[in-house]
Amino acid sequence: MIKTANGLRKPTIFEAFFYFALSLLVNAFGNGLTVAANMGSSMWTASAANIANDFSFSISWVLIIYGASQILINIVLTRHFDWPHIFGNIIFISFFGPFVGFFKSFFLTLGIANLPLPIVISLDILGICLIATAVSIYQRLNLILHPGDEMTNILRFQYFKGNAKIAQWVNFSIPATVIIVLMLIFRQITAVNIGTLFAFFFQGTVLNYADKVAFPKLKHRL
């Protein structure tokens, strides 16, 4: 919903398209940046990067498969089939995975991993903050969501009384488990570093802050 002087109104078609397209690009940009920096990605992306590395898969395809799995989890959490949202989830992951792969390749071509360590860490944390900001925007729009972020939305408002931090931690427990299991099996780990810890402990906090400062007139449409 959009806050106006007279209350709240639904976003126009142009506003909805603008917010969705912007948040999708910012999210993919941030994820691509963190994967290329290799100083720690958001939990789901870090988990996908480890699967891709351990099994020689394309990270774009792993993210798409992850998205499909998250859709099934959301059905279990809500206990019903929300076909419009499921269709929106499919649209999102169809674009999201390839965009992340594109931005990852773009940043690797720029040689981001060869920059001085403090700069790489700063860029990695910037990427995670961009991810949280993008999630904040399209969660408030609540039109087309990445299924992983819809999971956070479901947990946040249906299970944890609006607490984004707890909802994010519960969400992240799944990819964290995958990372630990793969590390024990393959004795290697990738895309997990300072940035991953920052994402685990503070992404929910950044998301809460972004709700207030990034397009503050855009309010949650539950």
Rank of each mutant, 00 (worst) to 15 (best):
H85E: 09
L115Q: 01
K104N: 11
G127P: 02
Y66W: 12
V135D: 05
I65S: 11
F160A: 12
I180G: 02
I90F: 15
C129H: 05
L115A: 04
F186H: 15
I166N: 04
L184Y: 08
L141A: 05
P84S: 15
P118M: 11
G111W: 10
A68V: 13
A164D: 00
I91A: 14
F160Y: 15
V135S: 06
F107P: 01
F106C: 06
A164P: 01
L145G: 04
S69I: 10
P175V: 07
F172C: 11
I131S: 05
L130P: 00
V181L: 15
I166D: 04
K104A: 10
S94E: 02
W83M: 14
L115N: 01
G101I: 03
P84Q: 14
V170R: 10
F157I: 06
S136R: 08
K104G: 00
Y159A: 08
F102S: 11
V170N: 09
G101A: 14
I73G: 05
F103R: 06
T109M: 12
S60C: 07
T133Y: 01
I93T: 07
I65F: 15
I131R: 03
I121V: 13
G162N: 05
F106A: 13
H80P: 00
Y159H: 15
V178C: 08
I64M: 14
G162A: 09
I112L: 15
I179C: 05
A113N: 13
I128Y: 08
N171P: 00
L72F: 13
L145I: 02
K104E: 11
I125D: 05
A68T: 03
A113Y: 10
Y138P: 01
P118A: 14
D149T: 02
T109F: 13
R187A: 12
I121K: 04
A164G: 00
R140A: 04
H80D: 02
N74M: 04
G97Q: 10
L130V: 06
H80G: 09
N163T: 02
I179M: 12
F157S: 07
G111T: 08
I119P: 00
I121G: 01
H146S: 13
N171H: 13
I64G: 04
N171F: 12
G88Q: 01
Q188L: 04
G162K: 05
L126D: 02
F160P: 00
S60L: 05
N74V: 00
Y66E: 11
I75H: 07
M183W: 13
L123A: 09
I137Q: 02
A113T: 03
I185C: 06
L143P: 02
L117E: 11
I93G: 04
F172M: 12
I93H: 06
C129G: 05
R187W: 08
V181T: 10
P147F: 11
I119V: 15
I121D: 06
T152G: 05
A68Y: 11
N114A: 13
N89T: 03
M151N: 09
I185E: 01
E150S: 13
I128R: 10
I166H: 08
I128V: 14
V135K: 03
I86W: 08
T133S: 15
L145P: 00
A176P: 00
P116T: 07
F103K: 07
I73K: 09
F81T: 03
V135I: 15
